[in-house]
Design a protein around this nucleic acid. Structure first.
Lengths: 104, 104
DNA sequence: TTAGTATATGAATATATGTTCATATATGTT
DNA sequence: AACATATATGAACATATATTCATATACTAA
């Protein structure tokens, strides 16, 4: 018994989509840097741009991407928006992989 | 003390590259399906193509991609190549994310 | 050696993606 | 209201990516 000749259980469309979107978010160096920074501390758009030497519009575009996937959130303080991590699981995924990349 | 106003420690180039490559491998639906299948059982190229309804050349191209990153390996048996997982950490990353995608 | 099967590869193509520039919107201040 | 600052957005562009088709290579058996 259990000769591993059971039929293979395919991944359903929706799961496949969510999983690929999640990893796609983490596959771009700019987004990785933004998420990693936000994992350290809440930041405004301008702060992110300065800290990472990126154009403000680049940061805004990527934050919109991350916000659509609910990986980040923001709070408003006047004209300034402070962004922070909204999905601790994905941040854990990132930190885990950073750790793995460094130690082998 | 520890007012969290220490300077932010940037990710180094090499780590950033490895991490983004790893996630890029996991960001495509076809590669996800291949890795998930190989996580269940060792398969030949033809078996993968049939099980997932993909063209043989599509499978070969993606296997080359995955092999370059050492995420899969193969053994030869005559003219047939049996592929299997070569990076359990990345498989764990995938399964973890599949589980997360399904349960929320 | 010839034929047959399994896999790999290169070129072509279509599509997706990331960045930049210019400009719009939103909020606060005077 | 006029102005300054912070952020968002749309269009244009260059580059990356995935798939397909055609064909090459590798191994096996007759």
């Amino acid at each position: 018994m259990n000769e591993n000749n059971e039929k293979y259980e395919q991944l359903d469309e929706e799961t496949l989509f969510i999983v690929s979107q999640t990893f796609k978010a983490l596959s771009d160096p700019t987004r990785i840097r933004i998420l990693h920074l936000l994992g350290e501390k809440e930041c405004s758009v301008t702060e992110i741009a300065e800290e990472l030497s990126l154009m403000q519009s680049t940061v805004s575009h990527q934050l919109r991407f991350l916000k659509n996937l609910r990986l980040v959130k923001f709070r408003r303080a006047g004209t300034t928006l402070f962004y922070s991590i909204d999905d601790e699981h994905v941040l854990a995924l990132l930190n885990q992989t950073i750790h793995h990349a460094r130690h082998d």
